[in-house]
Simulated assay, not measured.
Amino acid sequence: MTTNAKEWLHHLMGEARSAGIDHLDLLLNGAVLPEALLPPLLALSPAPECQWLLEHTPEQALAHQGPVLLRIALGDQAHIAATAHLFTAVYAQFCVLALISRWPFDKLAVQLRGATQATWNKGASSGVLRYYDTRLFRHFCEQLDPEQLAPFHGPVCRWHWIDHDGKKASLCGLDINPQDHSALTGLTLSAAQVQPLHALSAALQWLKKNDCTPAQHGFTSHEALIRCLTGIHLNLSRQQLEKPQHEAFIASALSEFPPLSLTPKKAAL
């Protein structure tokens, strides 16, 4: 097990136990999860509780390519060992959204399943909301309005993931009693909520295509560069520029951030 993966797993276990919780919930992105990793976990006896979140939704046919929720028993060494193996394999692949939750597993699964279902364009469009993709998770949470925050964050004490810089990241939930919640059946998003998410996706695609480092554009982290690129793509969309103008617009916006020097300057004599 790599040091980073081992430290993260121990950190998550400590967080759960500090909250008086004897399990750890893992929301795995089935679209990028290597096929060989899940069967050993599910073959354990007893096996972790498991739910594919796109089951019982309009996307049920694609359920095993979508998010899967597992509950790992912290008192079961076989569960811990299999989780350690999984963490090592996918540590920096944006595959694991971990959460600390007191909710009964079935109720938690219902709530997280409901959050995968979104409508937008005043109800004219619908589809899967990929909040479980940890490249998108923080940005998605920032778009939620007060009425959406409670049902989404209510079941969770704290969310945890690995960010674009390979560092531990986390966000507080609300830790609300499940009896105070009705089941979440979907989220309705406004244009103002959808546009930043489209901009983020475009920013990530641009970054992958151009394969540049944060320092080349004056940033000290991938997270900061991605946030900047998201703002640039949002402005690009608002100005309704034609596609041939996109690269020039992005290059001009990035030119405002001079590259960072990675070589320490010599002290003056």
Results as ranks from 00 to 15, higher is better:
Asp165Arg: 03
Trp159Ser: 06
Lys208Cys: 09
Phe257Asn: 11
Thr3Ile: 12
Thr230Trp: 03
Leu171Pro: 05
Asn121Lys: 09
His222Ile: 02
Pro39His: 08
Ala251Met: 05
Lys6Ile: 05
Leu207Cys: 05
Ser255Tyr: 08
Gln240Glu: 15
Gly123Arg: 03
Asp25His: 10
Asp25Phe: 01
Ser45Arg: 09
Pro67Leu: 10
Lys122Asn: 14
Phe257Met: 04
Thr57Asp: 11
Ala199Phe: 12
Ala92Ser: 14
Cys172Ala: 15
Asp106Ala: 15
Pro178Lys: 02
Ala61Trp: 06
Phe87Ala: 07
Asp211Gln: 14
Leu184Ala: 05
Gly20His: 01
His164Arg: 13
Phe257Glu: 02
Thr2Asn: 15
Arg17Cys: 02
Ala43Thr: 04
Ser237Tyr: 07
Leu225Ser: 08
Ser45Asp: 14
His56Val: 10
His164Thr: 04
Leu171Thr: 02
Gly127Thr: 07
Ser18Phe: 03
Leu144Trp: 01
Leu234Asp: 14
Ser237Asn: 13
Lys167Met: 13
Asp175Gly: 03
His11Phe: 13
Thr83Gln: 06
Cys172Ser: 14
His23Pro: 03
His246Gly: 00
Trp159Ile: 05
Leu241His: 12
His85Tyr: 05
Ala84Met: 09
Leu204Tyr: 10
Phe105Tyr: 11
Leu229Cys: 05
Leu207Gln: 14
Leu37Trp: 05
Ala118Leu: 12
Leu129Pro: 04
Glu55Pro: 01
Gly173Met: 06
Ala19Tyr: 01
His181Pro: 00
Leu69Asp: 11
Thr3Asn: 10
Ala192Glu: 15
Thr220Gly: 13
Leu241Ser: 10
Phe152Asn: 03
Lys167Ala: 14
Trp161Tyr: 14
His56Asn: 15
Cys95Glu: 07
Leu74Asn: 09
Ala150Thr: 03
Trp103Thr: 08
Cys50Glu: 14
His222Leu: 04
Trp206Lys: 01
Asn235Cys: 10
Gly114Ile: 11
Asp163Glu: 05
Ser170Leu: 03
Gln65Phe: 03
Leu9Gln: 15
Asn210Asp: 11
Leu26Val: 08
His198Glu: 14
Leu197Ala: 08
Pro34Val: 08
Thr230Ala: 05
Ala267Ile: 11
Trp159Leu: 11
Ser126Met: 07
Ser252His: 12
Pro196Thr: 07
Gly154Asp: 10
Ile162His: 02
Asp22His: 09
Lys122Gln: 15
Ile176Pro: 01
Gln51Gly: 01
Asp180Leu: 13
Gly66Met: 09
Ala118Ser: 10
Leu42Lys: 02
Ser45Glu: 15
His23Lys: 02
Pro48Ser: 06
Asp145Ala: 02
Ala253Leu: 02
Gln195Glu: 15
